[in-house]
Design a binder for these strands. Sequence first.
DNA 1: ACTATAAATGAAAATTTATTCATATAAAAA
DNA 2: TTTTTATATGAATAAATTTTCATTTATAGT
Lengths: 116, 116
Amino acid sequence: MKKDVQHELSIIFKLLGSERRLAILALLRDKPCSVSEIVDQLSMEQSAVSHQLQMLREAQVVTVEKVGRSVYYQLNDSHILTLLNNAEHHVDHVLRQMSHEEAVAGKQAESQEKHQ
Amino acid sequence: MKKDVQHELSIIFKLLGSERRLAILALLRDKPCSVSEIVDQLSMEQSAVSHQLQMLREAQVVTVEKVGRSVYYQLNDSHILTLLNNAEHHVDHVLRQMSHEEAVAGKQAESQEKHQ
DNA sequence: ACTATAAATGAAAATTTATTCATATAAAAA
DNA sequence: TTTTTATATGAATAAATTTTCATTTATAGT
């Protein structure tokens, strides 16, 4: 893998590796939102939201449009959506495996009880 | 998006959001590696590598196999590969757009020079 | 059994990232 | 034009992550 690609990759993953930014992106996935809509829905401070949006902007993950005195953000990037979808699959996979292992562990415990 | 999915997502993205871990994964993408192979190839400290591998292990991104006194790590997860590939596409897209914008900026500068 | 090598681990130190706070900017409303 | 509302931004603080250092564990070779 080329080094600058790796660097850019780490930037985009770093960006997605925050629950708050993921929450923002989840909102934007449905429809464009103004900053204050995001603030209200996620109960975050305005300044914190602005800082996060700044990062998403700089990485070209979202675009901006001024409407009156509001600023609307929207997803800019279909790749991000694909990425999120794939990642969700991965998570489903892991979560399922975990609950499967729990089930197995449960049966083992059960079986051990019988043998006591 | 469910909250626990979002949480897991942030974990996996956080994991991928590090150049060093990406470098490790790039090595493992080719073939399983022992800890000391990784240390040598990436010129990292042994302890740092071990800590990073611990995280990858705990997230079930890699699996471990002892061979003699070496410990070999390998990618466990095809989803991660897909994720990395998708992300590379995104990066290509952004990098291309950036160089496109540079080109445009260059032409504008050129054009402005003419008008001076 | 003793020594050397490979890797893991815990805790402290260093670095990075995120949040808050104070303030600035910009546009609409009064 | 002054006031209000929405957002942005810089700097300080707080929190999280990463690295380093010292030590431990485990295994192979002597």
